[in-house]
Each structure stands twice: as structure tokens, then as C-alpha cells.
């Protein structure tokens, strides 16, 4: 990737480029399902790119490509050398490279989603990589998780609690999760979803659309006109 002759090694500056959205969270919480849902819902009205950070295989990228929610060429997989959190926080070079390659090939884009490898509660995206970030938990991890906090839960721009359909089966109390999340997140939004039931994750998609609108308002340049959104 990125082997063409465009010289794009510029300093980070949001002007004229897509909003970069990081999606992180523990293994199995539904990050890839959320990415697929966002592609499904936002694809018709936005120009998208996706970067996946698989732990051991290209499973996530393959899943997304098979799901048929996005042109497979717009999905790039990055290997992270046993350290998924390093690749999104401490050494973001490979992810930046992948994002810029997508923008170079298909740009201008409206939104580039970077999905982290499944990690622990301390994993957050560097602001050098993601402009906004979503942290995804699921109810089957236990309703105590929001209370435990950690940078992912407390600092993400949006906390998504997925698999609400499983709550009765695992004895998770959504009221407790909601109250605890509000307490540690200082007013930042929390959305409860069941992507199995709402395959478009519409509430999350609405939040993302708002973020893309805001980003465009501040960072659009005349040289890079954006497509008209039809939310």
C-alpha cells in the first residue's frame, strides 16, 4: 500500500480530509458487527473507508468483505505484532499509513473507521490517529464493567453497550450499567444497542452522522468538496 508517488507525508491537520473514527473495545463485544452496521446504514450517503486491526488473522477484514457492506478494496487490514493497543495508541504509524492510503486511493472520503483489535479496558486511540472514538462493551461481559471504568469507558466520545438482547440471559441489569456509565463518563453519551436486532445500529449511525457533519463544518476546504449527505 501507499507505494505510489504521491508525497503525503504532511503534518496532521484535519482540513480537507475525512473524519477518522476509532472503534475499540474488548474481544467479542461487537466491534466488527458495529462497523458492518455503520457501513450498511451510512454507505449509501457517505464515502467510507475502513481499517481493521486483527489480532491474529484477517478474520475481521474478511468478515466485512464477505458481508458485502462495502467495496472490499476500501477495507484494509493492519497487523499489530501481538500488541493491538500499541498500534492504536503508542505507535500509530501503520494505521496512519493505512488511513492515508485509503484517502489517496479513494479520496476525498467522508469517514474513515479504524477498528482496533479486541483489547482490554485501558485501550484508547491516540488523538493523532482518531478524531473521535467509540468504545464498545457488551452486557455479557457483566454489568459491573462500566463501574470499573478505565480509559476506554470513561474517555471515549461515545460508549456503546451492545447485546442488550442477552441481558435477561446473563442476569445483567441495564439500569445499573446506564447509571454507572453516566457516573464515570461525566455526561458523555452512552447508547444501548442490539446489533443482532437492529442490523443498521441506527442510533449509533445517527451519532456518527452528527460527528461527520460537525467535522465537515469545521474542516471542509473548497478544494475537497464533500458529497451531499442524505441522512
Amino acid at each position: 500500500m501507499g507505494t505510489d508517488h504521491a508525497d503525503h507525508h504532511h503534518a496532521p491537520d484535519g482540513h480537507g480530509r475525512a473524519l477518522r473514527l476509532g472503534i475499540g473495545g474488548p474481544v467479542g463485544s461487537g466491534k466488527t458487527a458495529l462497523v458492518a452496521a455503520l457501513c450498511r446504514t451510512l454507505g449509501p450517503s457517505m464515502r467510507l473507508g475502513v481499517v481493521t486491526n486483527d489480532i491474529y488473522t484477517t478474520e475481521d477484514a474478511d468478515f466485512l468483505r464477505r458481508a458485502g457492506v462495502l467495496d472490499p478494496a476500501r477495507i484494509v487490514a493492519v497487523e499489530t505484532g501481538c500488541c493491538p493497543h500499541t498500534a492504536i495508541r503508542d505507535d500509530i504509524a501503520a494505521n496512519i499509513d493505512a488511513v492515508e492510503t485509503l484517502e489517496e486511493r479513494f479520496g476525498p472520503l467522508d469517514l474513515v473507521i479504524v477498528e482496533s483489535g479486541g483489547d482490554n479496558l485501558t485501550a484508547t486511540f491516540s488523538r493523532g490517529l482518531a478524531d473521535k472514538q467509540i468504545f464498545v462493551l457488551d452486557v455479557s461481559g457483566g454489568d459491573k464493567v462500566p463501574r470499573k471504568g478505565g480509559p476506554g469507558v470513561t474517555s471515549a466520545d461515545l460508549l456503546v453497550v451492545n447485546k442488550t438482547d442477552l441481558a435477561p440471559m446473563v442476569g445483567a441489569d441495564l439500569t445499573v450499567m446506564s447509571r454507572d456509565a453516566a457516573a464515570v463518563r461525566d455526561g458523555k453519551p452512552v447508547l444501548f444497542t442490539s446489533i443482532r436486532e437492529d442490523r443498521g445500529a441506527h442510533t449509533v449511525a445517527d451519532w456518527v452522522t452528527g460527528m461527520v457533519h460537525d467535522w465537515r463544518h469545521v474542516h471542509a476546504t473548497p478544494e475537497t468538496p464533500h458529497a451531499t449527505l442524505h441522512p
Binding site: 493492519v78 499489530t80 505484532g81 498500534a87 505507535d91 500509530i92
Partner: peptide, 11 residues
């Protein structure tokens, strides 16, 4: 090795 230039992902 902490230089953030992507080296951590190569063996």
C-alpha cells in the same frame, strides 16, 4: 524501540 515508526509489528 519506542520510536513510533511501526517497527513493533515486524519480527
Amino acid at each position: 524501540s519506542r520510536l513510533p515508526a511501526g517497527g513493533h509489528a515486524h519480527s
